[in-house]
Amino acid sequence: MKILVTVKEVAEVEDEFEISGDDIAEQYLEYDLNEWDDYAVEEAVQISEEAEDVEVVTATIGPERAEETIRMALAKGADRAVRVWDDDIESASYLDVEAKAELLAAVVEEEDPDLVLTGVQAGDESNGATGVTLAEKIGFEWAAVVNQLDLDIEGGVANVHRELEGGVEELTEVESPAVLTIQSGINEPRYASLRGIRQAQSKPLDVQTLDDIGLDADVLESPLAQTDLYEPESEGDATVWNGDAEETAGQLAEFLRDKGVVEG
């Protein structure tokens, strides 16, 4: 069995930052593996540890810098990695969900996996749409926001719990090949072990261009363009009290009294 996990390197912003042009100034950014993808990788690796002959391949769209992050997924137990990038992608003005799903669909076509795991969303853009759009494109069954997964490999069925609005849970069966978008909290992602980090240096990491995956630069065209980036004005304040219930309840009561919400 083969599991493809899509992973993204996301930019994380420090508490204090400045905007330069249409972006956050580079010196305030740090790059890391997208949090949700970490759970997806863990889920795939756990499956590969429990069953025989499971190959875990990661797929990413990203520049060379992203290799450090991809290697982290390899260090945690993925077997090999595919990274799609070339000059056209580099110079594309905006990579929208449609274009990303198109690129990933081409990778899926090449790899022919039984299961595709994606994160529910990426921490930077938070579209929460790439996984599902990918499923539509490749015609796989899908389930979004999966927070429990029980795989019947023989039967080709994934029994999943999905988290719906308002804390409602749905139990469904999805037939493979399938795309599942993985919710954080589904498992406890491991730390990459020192041994794993060492081994990851020699695991295969293929770089593929648009041409390699049978696409041309047209797929990058987007009706969307980013026009501005600004920090919203805060319109209210939140106060957080720490401590036990007795202590914090007292502070809350005092606060409500001060603000005139309650009397007495």
Binding site: M72, Y191, I197
Partner: peptide, 9 residues
């Protein structure tokens, strides 16, 4: 090689 990953982890 890999030292940045070690530091980060």
């Amino acid at each position: 090689e890999g030292i940045d990953q070690i530091r980060k982890e």
